[in-house]
């Protein structure tokens, strides 16, 4: 095995491990956490990492490891649902636009996408929060809306390439309609693209959620979230750096893991590379 190939599979392995670690921590937190995160313990506040509290405690004496585990639930749930919204609406829109390529409908769908792209997710979040008030649900909607054009564009461009291929022509000769062809022939052939992009949007969703809850637009206290933990730590950073360090590392490693997983999957699933191997 050549060094580059080894690196590629290493991406996949490290990515899957990191993603598994944080997903596992989130799931485990439903059953067990080292300390109850709703209980304050002012006597033991702002303690550095030790044998008792592996990652230390925060300004209310809550165990940071437990907070990170419970916070992973928020991050992952927000990101997964946001990707779900993006895929669930974006992919059908993109497929529809491609099936009616260069028609008025296509134009309308794609211009609509451009319009949403002009509002960065943060701005969408700001608008929604300004009216509905901050909450995790609104963060999901904000990030999810921004994901729609990402998936719509990707599926449209992937599908456009396929619609010119002879096997789609053959299906049309067989009398199949655009809808049936889209789901039977187009979708399975762009699934790889969607999986890879889904992983990347998942990681971007984690980052976006962290940013939103850092500025107070995400999950509200007492629900622990990584961004909120960082916001809380900010005023104490000079004497309690551990409060900022560990939640930040949690975000960094989760996002890194997902990105590596996405890269690894792309190399694994990319038909261009696979053709080169056979």
């Amino acid at each position: 095995m050549s060094p580059m190939r080894f690196l590629r599979s290493r991406n996949l392995v490290i990515g899957a491990l990191l993603t598994g670690l944080f997903t596992g921590a989130a799931l485990l937190s439903f059953l067990w956490v080292p300390y109850d995160v709703t209980q304050m313990d002012i006597a033991h506040k702002i303690k550095p990492p030790s044998g008792v509290h592996w990652l230390g405690t925060d300004h209310y004496g809550r165990d940071i490891l437990s907070m990170i585990m419970v916070g992973a639930r928020t991050s992952i749930a927000v990101a997964v649902l946001a990707v779900g919204i993006g895929m669930g609406l974006g992919v059908p829109l993109g497929l529809w636009a491609a099936a009616r390529r260069f028609s008025l409908l296509d134009e309308v769908i794609m211009r609509g996408n451009d319009l949403v792209f002009a509002f960065p997710s943060l701005i969408i979040a700001v608008m929604i929060t300004a009216i509905l008030g901050p909450s995790a649900t609104n963060a999901i909607i904000a990030i999810g809306i921004f994901n729609i054009p990402v998936f719509a564009r990707l599926s449209r461009s992937g599908a456009l390439g396929l619609w010119n291929r002879d096997f789609i022509l053959a299906a049309r000769v067989a009398g199949k309609g655009a809808m049936r062809i889209s789901f039977e022939h187009v979708l399975p052939n762009i699934l790889n693209l969607l999986i890879v992009q889904g992983t990347i949007q998942f990681s971007m969703g984690i980052l976006a959620e962290a940013g939103l809850s850092y500025v107070g637009l995400g999950a509200q206290p007492p629900t622990p979230s990584w961004g909120r933990m960082l916001a809380d730590s900010q005023t104490m950073i000079s004497f309690a750096p551990h409060m900022a360090l560990f939640p930040g590392l949690a975000i960094l490693l989760t996002v890194l893991g997902l990105n590596l997983l996405g890269d690894g999957l792309r190399d694994l699933l990319d038909p261009k590379l696979r053709r080169g191997r056979t």
Binding site: D166, F167, A171, P188, N189
Partner: peptide, 18 residues
């Protein structure tokens, strides 16, 4: 339509690989 069929040029692009 079912009384006529077609064979295309590219033997690699004519089939859904899945």
């Amino acid at each position: 339509r079912r009384r006529m069929q077609v064979v295309f040029q590219d033997p690699y692009g004519s089939f859904n690989p899945r």
